[in-house]
Design a protein around this nucleic acid. Sequence first.
RNA 1: GAGCCGGUAGCUCAGCUGGCAGAGCAGCUGACUUUUAAUCAGCAGGUCCUGGGUUCGAUCCCCAGCCGGCUCACCA
Length: 510
Amino acid sequence: MSEELNQVLRARREKLESLRSRGMEPFAYSFDRSHGNGAARELFEEAESENRLPEDGHGPEVRVAGRIVSWRGHGKSAFAHMEDGGERIQLYFKKNVLGEESFDLALEMLDLGDWIGVSGPTFRTRTGEVTVRVDAWTLLSKSLRPLPFGKVEVDAETGERVVHSGFADTEGRYRQRYADLAVNPEVRDVFRTRARIVTELRRFLDDHGFLEVETPALQPLYGGAAARPFVTRHNALDREMYLRIADELYLKRLIVGGFEAVYEIAKDFRNEGIDRFHNPEFTMLEFYRAYWDYHDVMAFIERMLAHVVDAVVGSRELTFQGTGLSFEAPFARVHFMDALGEAMGADPGSLSDDELRERARALRVPDVDRAGRGKLLDKLFGELVEPDLVQPTFVLDHPLELSPLAKPHRERPGVVERFELYVNGAELANAFSELNDPLDQRARFEDQSALRAGGDDEAHRVDDDYIRALEYGLPPTGGLGMGIDRLVMLLTDQASIRDVILFPVLRSEE
RNA sequence: GAGCCGGUAGCUCAGCUGGCAGAGCAGCUGACUUUUAAUCAGCAGGUCCUGGGUUCGAUCCCCAGCCGGCUCACCA
């Protein structure tokens, strides 16, 4: 990339050359830290509270490192803040401590964004901040491009952090997430929380006898959900392959193989629109457990979410975009057909397809003419019921046409043993008593094929190998899929899925 | 895919009715040895998203496009 260097970039290049000409390497190989910035501060505070500080008030010597995030020069001294990971510590450069040469070099050569390592004793300044008096410094990496630092004001009374003129441009923040992370600590916090959520999910599943497995992301035939795939090509095999849209069919093959409980946390890929709740690649947790039905899964996920919410939020009451949500079990339960019937003022099961179509048309649902019964019911539900499912709510027993991989309900005709968990009007999880009758499964696939032939390009494909696996025998099994990104959004109060995915998909910059 | 809003200095943003492009921060020069949005003085920094059009003259008006945000649609 050839880019006209502006004056700021040029100045930094000149400093780089100047450093080299003075025999100082601007890109170091390593630095031997004695403490992280937070630990260095605590070390001082400990010594202070135990009255172990000498007369001059200078505490233990430390070697710390980080990125320079602010600089205040005062002639023959200077204050800076340096940040490592998330902890910030103040540095005090003083001419008569460092010596003229080292002090002048720091003033001339150091910029915001540079990585440095320093050593010296800790002390408390007149204004009360624990600070490292820099006895020696070394450049670890020269920053050649200015980071968009704002000015950080800390309210003396509330301790509240106010950022002025910070890096706020949403497009820039997503395109250059490295810069976003570098200057916005709260963004780093979101992703730390994301990691903790995944860790706690994993811990809970591990503690309950689940085995973590890995199944193919690159598949000869996709399935397990209704979605359009990304198509790619394997050259040596000379064939098309697909990025997975779900893990489901492989995980159930593993139950056939004799594993009793498996889970996978992995990326799925769906070749569809992008918006606040959808990114083309997203992270899904799926688990399957032999001998369970969907009631067992329901009870388990209530406990699993309680565990994660307790660990990450510390309370089962949380606020998402101004709305209070309670993750206290048991969650509300509504039956799909009952809830829809109530909203429609009529039993949808006793209405004909044409009558349903008329109802949908009245609600200005698009494309109703070619929609089958399952799709119509789903559209009506989405229109009339979903928006009201704000608190965590299980929706039970969906129409059979909508659920080609779920077992028919043991008592209610026309519906399956399935639940979706809705929170804040959006689907968070989806689960079934898994269909384990291979003959029924084949018939369901064939129904889907008919839908596909009728123009529904999201209908499920026939997967003969999966049928073969079922023929060997799938024990009764309960399974679940949960969108991790959406869970992270809820628990970190982020309005867009792009705020919980480090590098979301964007259009090309060019 | 539709509607609305936006794109101006490295960052955050002004820019009136069409008349030489502005501020703060960051940068550079100088002053300042406990500051913390440090302060003070000065300087430099622009493909006004792109391409057309209207006009004596366009950051501004018109048309087309690109990128982003929000809402709706789509996404079981």
